[in-house]
């Protein structure tokens, strides 16, 4: 049953790709992209959690109680998480633009003035 685990593992792998980008890249925009990738990996993970083979939208109707339904809760969570991700990304991009105004570069090795 290795197949049923594969999507989850790939999700975690995608998350790691995002974290790697955040930790190793020197360009502000690439760091932001790393955060976005990691964010999407977590969202995808949540969606996978509720997925069932042949599942349908969880709308209860009289006489149709026996159908296979997907779990609706993670979808609500993902919706919230996407909105939060949007706010974070917008904030990071705004800060990156202001930093570019001040320093004339997106390279963090040349923005590093705080030390110690």
């Amino acid at each position: 049953m290795i197949h049923s685990w594969l999507p989850y593992v790939l999700c975690i792998l995608l998350f790691c790709v995002g974290v790697y980008a955040v930790l190793s890249k020197k360009n502000l925009i690439r760091i932001i992209l790393g955060i976005v990738i990691a964010d999407y990996a977590v969202n995808l993970f949540l969606i996978l959690l509720c997925w069932k083979k042949g599942g349908e939208a969880p709308i209860l109707q009289p006489g149709a109680m026996e159908q296979v339904m997907v779990d609706p809760l993670p979808q609500a969570l993902v919706l919230t998480s996407i909105v939060i991700g949007l706010a974070t990304t917008a904030f990071l991009v705004a800060i990156a633009m202001r930093l570019h105004e001040r320093y004339g570069t997106y390279d963090i090795t040349r923005i590093r003035e705080l030390r110690g």
Partner: peptide, 20 residues
């Protein structure tokens, strides 16, 4: 701005770990 960027990146990463 530099501190806020660093803080926001680290903070978002922390939040993602929490969500996972």
């Amino acid at each position: 701005l530099e501190a806020a960027f660093k803080y926001a990146v680290m903070g978002s990463l922390g939040s993602l770990l929490l969500l996972l």
